[in-house]
């Protein structure tokens, strides 16, 4: 793993290796001296062309816990506002001998461009590009789910996958790079994913994704889920009206107080509520749901540092070729893509 650009091309071996390494990194956060010397003398540049709070802070904390030097760069207040191109910015960083570049960009594919163009020699880690992917967010979500699953089973999470876990991803899938990264990663790890969104907020071609699709949150809840991931309604990316009103959205696709109560009446006491943040309280998630004991929002933030430490460590230490595949794919049953459940739901919706 030299670069981490997307979860779509992440093998099961590497995904589990990152999660296992993150498990060990998490132990460091509980110690008195929260620092490891592994990346001493390496330079990590946080290259942020888009606003971000938790991702940038999380990467910064992760790099610092590994003793790397961190340079923060945000497009605002830099030469980018004078019109500097990505290429020139990258070559400037190269001249300063950056060892890793963590990039968040509004354009889908910018990290891949950086990694493959030869402008820069550093390891490139995608911290969110446009509406394409956000791999470290998917990894930390998977890490959170894996810990939850192993706590329920009373087993050690190291080395395990997510086979049998039912995950519903609800909300603005169209604009969500988090949803894309999660769909690929969760399918690699063997979880069953259902996307729930209004038809206007589903991307073209979603029927080819390795997941089920539904337009009705209540029926998905009734069918049973182990984790509900609520996505943010990305108003800043919406240049069109995708739903009639926020009230209607919240009533039909939001995780409101009534649906929170339904989880209890349906007997799903171990179902967790996830949100990648920042939350629009009262729109896609109610305050009661966000603050309930099911919510893993803060655990996700905490796990984010461990997962990013693992990614930085694996990308920057030693020789990083993919290990030869040795694990069998977790889903041994017949491949059910394109998903029949999705087709049924579509029929019902018509």
């Amino acid at each position: 793993m030299r670069h981490l650009l997307s979860t779509q091309d992440l093998s099961l071996e590497n995904a589990i290796r990152i999660l296992d390494t993150a498990e060990e990194m998490a132990a460091v956060g509980e110690r008195e001296v929260k620092k490891l010397p592994a990346l001493r003398g390496r330079t990590v540049v946080n290259l942020f062309f888009e606003d971000s709070t938790r991702t940038r802070i999380s990467f910064e904390a992760a790099a610092k816990r590994l003793s790397a030097d961190v340079i923060n760069f945000s497009a605002k207040g830099s030469s980018v506002s004078k019109g500097e191109s990505l290429k020139d910015t990258a070559q400037t960083l190269e001249a300063m001998s950056a060892d890793a570049v963590v990039i968040r960009h509004w354009a889908s594919g910018a990290p891949a461009q950086l990694a493959t163009s030869g402008w820069i020699d550093a390891a490139v880690i995608n911290a969110g590009d446009g509406t394409h992917e956000h791999p470290t967010q998917a990894l930390l979500d998977a890490f959170t789910m894996r810990r939850h699953l192993s706590r329920l089973n009373g087993t050690d999470s190291t080395g395990s996958n997510l086979v049998g876990l039912r995950v519903a991803i609800a909300g603005d899938v169209l604009h969500s790079r988090v949803a894309r990264s999660n769909v690929w990663l969760l399918q690699t790890l063997g979880a069953e994913v259902t996307l729930v969104a209004p038809p206007t907020l589903l991307p073209v071609g979603v029927e080819h994704w390795p997941c089920a699709v539904s337009y009705d949150l209540d029926s998905v809840l009734e069918a049973g889920v182990d984790a509900i991931m609520v996505l943010r309604v990305q108003a800043e990316r919406m240049n069109d009206s995708f739903f009639p009103s926020t009230r209607e959205y919240s009533r039909r696709w939001g995780l409101d107080d009534a649906r929170l109560a339904r989880l209890d009446t349906l007997g799903m006491k171990d179902t967790i509520i996830m949100h990648p943040g920042p939350m629009n309280r009262g729109l896609e998630i109610s305050s009661a749901a966000a603050d309930s004991s099911r919510s893993t929002v803060l655990a996700q933030v905490r796990n984010g540092v461990s997962v990013r430490m693992a990614v930085l460590y694996l990308a920057l230490s030693g020789d990083l070729r993919d290990p030869p595949p040795r694990l069998p794919p977790p889903r041994t049953a017949v491949d059910n893509r394109p998903n029949t459940r999705a087709d049924e739901t579509r029929e019902n919706a018509r």
Partner: peptide, 18 residues
């Protein structure tokens, strides 16, 4: 693992539990 002086020269080692 994380305290070794040959991290950059060897194939990546996955850390073990302490």
């Amino acid at each position: 693992t994380m305290f070794r002086d040959d991290l950059a020269r060897q194939p990546t080692r996955a850390p073990e539990r302490t």
